[in-house]
Amino acid sequence: MTDTLPASLDADLRALLADVLGLAPARVAAFTAQTPLFGALPELDSMAVAGLFTALEDSFGFILEEDEIDGDLLETYGALLAFVARKQGHG
């Protein structure tokens, strides 16, 4: 999946996750498409989700509509990356 996306998009999303959630960059660098996020990362609790969504909008220049937000969006790193890519017109 990440092979067809701009490498900068993956790097930018990883940097944003590290910054917003206070994760070590090396930890985020080890994420694969199957790495679970919400419910698996203690740092990504319900309070952090709102901050993450705001940061996604600000950093990637799109608006998250309420009907786009569901449990699948934050299920895995790959799901989140694919969503951001679609919002930016990469898929």
Score class of each variant (00 low, 15 high):
D19Y: 03
T32G: 13
E66L: 13
L74C: 11
A7Q: 12
G91K: 00
A79T: 07
A33S: 12
A85P: 06
P42H: 13
A18E: 13
F38T: 02
L80R: 05
F62P: 07
P42Y: 10
A50Y: 13
T54I: 09
L81Y: 05
D12W: 08
Y77C: 04
L52Q: 12
L80E: 14
F83K: 04
L56A: 03
G61K: 00
P42D: 15
L9V: 00
G22Q: 13
A79D: 10
E68Y: 00
L9R: 02
A18Q: 08
T4K: 15
A24M: 06
A26S: 04
V28E: 11
D19V: 04
R27Y: 09
A7S: 13
A29T: 05
G51P: 09
L16M: 04
G89M: 01
T4S: 15
F60L: 01
D45K: 04
L44K: 08
A33V: 04
L17G: 08
A30C: 13
L5P: 13
L81C: 10
P25V: 07
A33G: 07
A50L: 14
L16R: 01
L9G: 02
L17K: 09
H90V: 03
R86T: 12
E57W: 05
L73K: 00
A18P: 15
M1Q: 05
V28I: 11
A18R: 01
D10I: 02
G39Q: 10
A15R: 14
P6S: 08
G91D: 13
L73A: 03
P6M: 07
D12G: 14
T76W: 01
P25Q: 09
L74K: 15
E75N: 10
V84E: 00
P6K: 04
R27C: 04
L64M: 11
T2M: 15
T35I: 02
A18T: 13
A85E: 06
A85Q: 02
Y77G: 07
L80I: 10
L5V: 08
L81S: 09
D19T: 06
I69D: 13
E66M: 11
R27H: 08
D10S: 04
Q34P: 08
A85R: 00
L81F: 11
T4G: 15
H90T: 04
M1T: 05
F62R: 05
E68I: 00
T32L: 03
L21R: 06
G51D: 07
A15D: 10
D58G: 09
T76I: 00
T2D: 15
T32A: 09
D58K: 07
F83S: 06
T2S: 15
A29E: 03
V20P: 03
L21G: 06
F53V: 09
T76L: 04
H90F: 10
L81P: 12
T76F: 03
E66A: 12
D67H: 13
D12N: 13
E65W: 02
A48I: 00
G51C: 09
F53D: 06
R14W: 01
A55Y: 14
F53S: 14
D19Q: 06
T2N: 15
L13F: 10
P6D: 06
D45P: 04
A7Y: 07
L41N: 03
T4W: 15
D70S: 11
E66D: 15
R86N: 14
A33T: 04
A33K: 00
G78P: 05
G91T: 03
E43W: 02
T76K: 00
A50C: 11
G71V: 05
S46K: 03
G89P: 05
E65R: 11
T32N: 07
G61C: 10
G78D: 13
L41Q: 03
